[in-house]
Amino acid sequence: MAIDVEQYYRQYGPLVLRRCRYLLKNEEEALDIMQEVFIKLLRNEDKLEGEHPSSLLVRIATNECLNHIRSRRRHPEDYDEELLLRIADATDEESRSSARNMLDRIFGRELESTRTIAVLHLLDGLTLEETAEQVGLSVSGVRKRLRSLARHVKELEDMQA
């Protein structure tokens, strides 16, 4: 299945750019990562079989943004731009602390797909069922991943205590 870049960008470019803007909060970086997302799509077009392009693109965009943020975190001058602080600002006060603590550790410990699941569920507010649909897993699979993630977070918190 050959991808028509123009057609895909026309149809899905705004979705992907908004996703990158939302996670990166930087127009130029978002634009750059959006292009990377479409390049990834070109290289993984076989994965388009049998699923909506928007779900795949959202997942690729989320992963790419997380990777970008992780590399940005290696530079001390970029620390203030850390994604999770912005993410926390967008959540309600009650969930703020736990979401920040949990997501902050995802970058260091968890598998890429688990990070995406965590962002979709904890940040975007998708239910477990909706998250499962987006990533192509069962609800129990998503729950298991999140439990594993929570366990790692607890381990890290215990180590720091």
Partner: peptide, 21 residues
């Protein structure tokens, strides 16, 4: 749609407009 606390996620609205829900 599954019960949720709070608003409908943007992702679902995006997919609604794309006809992919």
């Amino acid at each position: 749609m599954t019960q949720r606390n709070g608003k409908i996620p943007d992702i679902l609205l995006e997919q609604y407009l794309l006809g992919e829900l």
